[in-house]
Design a binder for these strands. Structure first.
Length: 635
RNA sequence: GCUGCUGUAACUCAGGCGGUAGAGUACUACCUUGGUAAGGUAGAAGUCACGGGUUCGAAUCCCGUCAGUAGCUCCA
């Protein structure tokens, strides 16, 4: 028997393997109450439903991730079934639930296009309306393989072959369609009331570019049409925050055909950038960092020494000077190594924290470029910390706290990933265990949650990655802390210990913003262009009602500018409504209308982009308010 | 790099299944001097991404290149 907890807290029992309908009957007494829905194989959770008078089950919403996944996973089977009905020759690959829906990969000669979507959706709706019962069954390995071979599904056969020895091989059947699947699923197709195919894209079989590229249909489903409509609405809203769109509208940056992946920063974008850099310098000075600047081009031999030649060559640009071979730096570390080596250090100097706003160039694949988020040249807010073994933990914690401080300042939510030894790693297993352990230890002592990203570390060491979300929920790695045991060896870095002998320092690489370009992209999407005042390109805009007040407005503008504010004055011969509309579209932080009233009273009518009308304010009070807002870096 | 889609004025986009282009915004001039999200009139502005092919004729059809874009792969 399985227990079913109803929303009112009471518990009912149902036979294991019961269908939702059977469960509904068994709790018939609770008619009309919201319950927690069962799924076909007894995993009972995650979906709110209502039992109707005729024992019909009406799923209301997802309660948690598991319920959502179960629902979406069933959606993916309906998608596959629909496609198989229209394209019987399609070979099935995989079809999991994802964050906001599900996808299914197909191997098919016919190229899907958006024109195919309505027909497939129509077929899917037929499957939903038929409310096919979903039944689970298990087969021993041999039979499972024979079954999928008989169905002409080579990808499924491959999947079964790769399942672990002791794996239970389960199938789910709905009508004429059966799929290999671990489940769980709904007990019938009926609740998938609102289904929509979102897009089609290529995807490599098993995620390897060495394999065949399949066609992936992305789709989503909800219990109610209204929920689907709301989801689509939300997506539309999110697209309006796209940093590429806002960046153009606000004239922050531009990327031209002449330089794919090489962004230009326009005057207003430069203000944001400079404010961030000023802040960065101030905070680094306060934390005992020194700043250097290393060259963009250095001899190719340096990159042999660092190991980048062997591990990163495909991402580097090269050039010649006279007869010598040079490379444009893809990372700042080798330059920093030379800077360290220029003199002798004592253990008493440690830790040494050397920062650099270093511009790097990387040859990224053309298909990977994405606005400011993924570019071919960007500035890393880099720093290298050299230290003694006993300083490792405190230094790592110091950087974690630093990153947390900066991200919190902007109200960012982030998650941390620990990336471990990759296949092409340099160094011994012992070194990797030591460095990986140090990162883990620091995280554990902070009590911070993190996910482990096996094999995703840099070639010279493991790393902690700090990921931020864009408007569509895609995550981007920004901050990172990398413990490196390789560079100090390769460059033969030393310090003199208390014993008078040479020793090898420990080093970490770290960035806070990650890339200033990417960080600005995230900022734009996070704030939808309505930046915190301290980084806002235009903090105040004065709008004259008529040209009569132009002189007064200019004087006032001068006064505000002298108070340290970034001010624009709009004295154009346009109606005030027009100017306000334009200033709002420019996302100016504070808009002040200057007319007869203001000239006579000496006051300002203030309108905030975030709080709306603030009413009348005297000029000094306004300056004081904004100055305070800037000083405290209010969001 | 791979798969799909896209590329028309500074911007946002119509139009195209063959007969060399249109709207709104922005821009310029004039009129209007107006109090909280678009005042009016006129004007200028495009080798329809680039190269090739088919054709009497290509923005339109075909091929290629470049760029953008959604994903995949890869990464800050």
């Amino acid at each position: 028997m399985i227990n079913i907890t109803l929303k009112d807290g009471s518990i009912r029992q149902a036979k294991e393997g019961s269908s939702i309908l059977e469960i509904a009957k068994s709790i018939n007494q609770s008619l009309g109450k919201e319950a927690v829905a069962g799924v076909v194989d007894g995993d009972v959770q995650g979906l709110s439903y209502r039992v109707s008078q005729d024992c019909h089950l009406d799923i209301l919403k997802f309660d948690d991730e598991q319920g959502k996944d179960t629902f979406h996973h069933t959606g993916s089977h309906i998608l596959a079934q629909g496609v198989k009905r229209l394209f019987p020759q399609a070979k099935l690959a995989i079809g999991p639930a994802i964050d906001n829906g599900f996808y299914y990969d197909f191997d098919l000669e016919h190229r899907f296009s958006e024109e195919d979507f309505p027909a497939i959706e129509k077929e899917m709706r037929k499957i939903v309306e038929a409310n096919l019962a979903i039944e689970k069954f298990e087969l021993p390995r041999g039979e499972a393989i024979a079954f999928m071979e008989a169905q002409g599904e080579p990808y499924k056969v491959e999947l079964i072959n790769d399942l672990p020895e002791d794996a239970v091989i389960s199938f789910y059947k709905q009508g004429e369609f059966t799929d290999l699947c671990a489940g769980p699923h709904l007990s019938s197709t009926g609740p998938e009331k609102a289904i929509k195919i979102m897009s089609v894209a290529g995807a490599y079989w098993r995620g390897s570019e060495k394999n065949k590229m399949l066609q992936r249909l992305y789709a989503t489903s909800f219990p109610k049409q209204k929920q689907l409509d709301e989801y689509i609405e939300k997506l539309e809203e999110a697209k309006k925050r796209d940093h590429r769109k806002i960046g153009k509208e606000m004239d922050l940056f531009a990327i031209f055909d002449e330089g794919p992946g090489f962004p230009f920063f326009m005057p207003k974008g430069m203000i944001i950038r400079n404010e961030l850099e000023n802040f960065w310098r101030q905070e680094h000075r306060a934390r005992g960092y020194e700043e250097i600047k290393t060259p963009l081009i250095l001899s190719e031999s340096l990159w042999h020494t660092s190991g980048h030649w062997d591990h990163y060559q495909n991402n580097m640009y090269f050039t010649k000077i006279d007869d010598g071979d040079y490379a444009i730096k893809p990372m700042n570390c080798p330059g920093s190594m030379l800077a360290y080596k220029r003199k002798m250090y004592s253990y008493r100097d440690f830790p040494i924290r050397i920062g650099e706003l270093g511009q790097v160039h990387r040859h990224e694949l053309s298909g990977a470029l994405h606005g400011l988020m993924r570019v071919r040249t960007f500035t890393q807010d880099d720093a290298h910390i050299f230290m003694l073994p006993e300083q490792i933990k405190d230094e790592i914690i110091g950087v974690i706290d630093f990153i947390d401080f900066v991200y919190n300042l902007f109200g960012f939510k982030y998650h941390i990933e620990l990336s471990t030894k990759p296949e092409d790693a340099m160094g011994t297993d012992e070194e990797w265990e030591l460095t990986t352990g140090a990162l883990k230890e620091a995280m554990d002592s902070k009590g911070l949650p993190y996910v482990i990203n096996e094999g995703d570390g840099a070639f010279y060491g493991p790393k902690l990655d700090f990921h931020l979300e864009d408007s569509l929920g895609r995550t981007w790695q920004c901050g990172t802390i990398q413990l490196d045991s390789q560079m100090p060896q390769r460059f033969d870095l030393t310090y003199i210990g208390s014993d008078g002998e040479k020793h090898r320092p420990i080093m970490i690489h770290r960035v806070i913003f990650g890339s200033i370009e990417r960080f600005i992209g995230i900022l734009i999407e996070h704030f939808a262009g309505k930046f915190p005042l301290w980084i806002a390109p235009v903090q105040v805009k004065l709008l004259t009602v008529t040209e009569k007040f132009a002189d007064y407005a200019q004087e006032l503008g001068k006064k505000l500018t002298e108070a340290g504010l970034r001010v624009e004055v709009d004295v154009r011969n346009e109606k005030i409504g027009y100017k306000i509309r334009e200033a709002r579209n420019e996302r100016v932080s504070y808009i002040c209308v200057i007319g007869e009233k203001e000239v006579n009273s000496g006051q300002l009518q203030v309108r905030s982009s975030k709080e709306g009308e603030l009413g009348a304010m005297d000029v000094d009070g306004f300056i004081a308010k904004l100055t305070e807002e800037i000083k405290t870096k209010q969001v």
